[in-house]
């Protein structure tokens, strides 16, 4: 499954006929019967792992010190070796080729694209993380994240978020921080290049055009920003919201070049 497939599945939840056809496609391709043995590919190394159950592991993978690997498919090949390190608990997921998961990662009900990384206690739950992405130290729930997403510090996705890739999450950003129930009852849709800055708190359902940069601050209401390449900032002292379209081209060309340079580098 590619991230675009997941987008189709998630976008049209009210179209029962379409979803039924998707299920039929899937069932035609994969067996629904239970009771298969696990598989481990050639040259795969497994050491000091505690529980491995119902796992299909490709060739050349390296698993060391994982706590629990259950109902997991790990794609791996000589060209793109997948590594799983200490303290990881991975349940009900699919891991793409060339991924690295290490140091206390908890992932449940997830899909990871190829060449992505989860590290340093990251939690990935009910989510799809696209190719060439990195998440470390933080929490991602109920999100569909397209390729080249970077998230390195403590921050959270607390609503149902769709982020179209090439995105950055700065430290302390919380997306959907005012969800109303225990579930992820808000929704955020962001175009490519979404970049909430330090401690940005987006409280409610919001939608952003491509390459929206958000300056530090609490944004108290729903936002719909349709103009791309904008800087959004909260002018609290004057009680107004400021938007500078085409900001990237006026003041931040370096960042734009950096975002567009996130091309695949085989490991």
């Amino acid at each position: 499954m590619q991230v675009a497939d997941a987008w189709l599945w998630s976008k049209y939840r009210d179209d029962e006929k379409l979803l039924q056809r998707f299920r039929e496609f899937t069932d035609a391709k994969y067996d629904t019967r239970r009771g298969y043995y696990g598989k481990i590919g050639d040259r795969t190394v497994i050491k000091n792992c505690r529980i491995i159950k119902d796992a299909w592991i490709g060739s050349d993978a390296y698993l060391k010190g994982a706590n629990k690997i259950k109902n997991i498919t790990i794609n791996s090949s000589p060209e793109a070796k997948t590594q799983i390190g200490e303290g990881c608990e991975l349940v009900n997921g699919i891991i793409g080729s060339g991924c690295r998961i290490f140091y206390g990662v908890k992932a449940v009900r997830f899909v990871m694209g190829s060449n992505s990384q989860l590290k340093y206690g990251a939690r990935l739950i009910n989510s799809f993380l696209g190719d060439n992405s990195t998440i470390s130290c933080c929490e991602v729930l109920n999100s569909l994240i397209f390729p080249a997403h970077e998230q390195h510090h403590n921050n959270s996705f607390l609503c149902a978020a769709t982020v179209l890739g090439q995105s950055n999450m700065a430290a302390g950003a919380t997306i959907g921080s005012n969800h109303n129930s225990r579930g992820a009852d808000g929704e955020l849709i962001a175009g490519r290049g979404f970049w909430p800055g330090l401690c940005v708190s987006l409280k409610h359902n919001s939608k952003f055009a491509s390459f929206t940069l958000i300056a530090k601050g609490d944004f108290p209401a729903e936002l719909n920003i349709p103009i791309p390449f904008s800087l959004l900032s909260n002018d609290v002292s004057n009680e107004r919201l400021l938007l500078m379209p085409a900001y990237w081209f006026m003041y931040n060309m370096y960042a734009l070049a950096q975002e567009c340079d996130k091309v695949f580098q085989p490991r």
Binding site: A221, E222, L223, E239, L241, L243, P245
Partner: peptide
Amino acid sequence: FENSRRKVVILKAAD
């Protein structure tokens, strides 16, 4: 642009 009563000001529109 925002679900509130406060102003949303666009800066440097001509640029």
